[in-house]
């Protein structure tokens, strides 16, 4: 058992099956509070799958079974009596492609607080403002909060989705290739944003972009065919990887 109390996520021998096909094999991982962890690896190696175990989004897929230990704040989140709704409130998720709801910008951000029971207008407005500021979107949208979220650009939409997550005041942020659908400038803005956010949140980000992983993260995990092959400080992974395969992958010789 981890005794260090700034450990946020702890997995030991975590296995996951889609029906009979194994997607995660004996994953051991230990993610510290208020750090950015990058997950890299070739397509289909299980990065998204791992990420989705952390907020139990895999529950939505039929015939998924998991085995092993997965603790968040020292609580086993796979226990049957776990309140999934509360878990997902604590563990926010930003998806690969921006998926704003077809409603106004304000309503998008206010959605989370509202479903968690906040009715007070002022409280909602405050949360919306705070979250949009945190997501570095406020200046661009402050005059058009009632406009449809679908009218924003892709990069703005993604920051809106981040704001939407921040509004429920999570502790962990899961990001599955959050910039893969964006242009370089929007990507840069989100990377800057990450540096701000890590002061408050524990962030796990999946990325296919090696520079991005190197730029933003403290720790990097390299996944290969369902295994966490190498897991170390980002510095180490990118300068002196232990495995030949890691080296091949990060230098682009993989294949």
């Amino acid at each position: 058992m981890p005794d260090n109390n700034n450990i946020k996520v702890f997995a030991e021998k975590l296995n996951l099956y889609y029906g009979h096909t194994q997607a995660l094999k004996d994953i051991n991982i230990c993610i510290k509070e208020k750090e950015i962890t990058a997950l890299i690896g070739p397509s289909g190696c299980g990065k998204s799958t791992f990420l989705r175990t952390l907020n139990r989004m895999n529950d939505l897929i039929p015939f998924v079974t998991t085995a092993g230990t997965l603790l968040i704040d020292n609580q086993d989140i796979n226990k049957p009596d776990v309140d999934v709704v509360a878990l997902r409130k604590k563990v926010g998720m930003v998806f690969q492609s921006p998926n704003p709801f077809p409603m106004s910008i304000f309503e998008n951000v206010a959605y989370g607080p509202k479903i968690h029971g906040i009715k007070d207008k002022d409280e909602l407005s405050y949360l919306v403002l705070k979250s949009l500021k945190e997501a570095a979107l406020w200046d661009e949208v402050k005059d058009q909060l009632n406009k449809s979220a679908l009218s924003l650009s892709g990069g703005q939409q993604q920051r809106l989705c981040i704001a939407r997550v921040l509004a429920v005041e999570p502790e962990i942020l899961l990001m599955d290739e959050p910039t893969s659908a964006l242009d370089p400038i929007s990507t840069l803005r989100i990377e800057e944003l990450l540096q701000e956010l890590k002061k408050q949140f524990t962030i796990v980000i999946v990325t296919h972009n090696m520079q991005q992983a190197a730029r933003v993260s403290h720790v990097t995990g390299f996944f290969l065919t369902g295994e966490l092959l190498e897991y170390d400080l980002t510095e180490n992974i990118f300068t002196k990887p232990q495995h030949k395969k890691t080296e091949d992958y990060i230098t682009g010789r993989f294949g």
Binding site: A86, H116, G117, E123, L127, E169
Partner: peptide, 14 residues
């Protein structure tokens, strides 16, 4: 911002 007790009460209904 949100106190936990208040929140739990609110969650009963859904």
């Amino acid at each position: 911002m949100l106190n936990k007790k208040k929140l739990n009460k609110r969650l009963v209904l859904p």
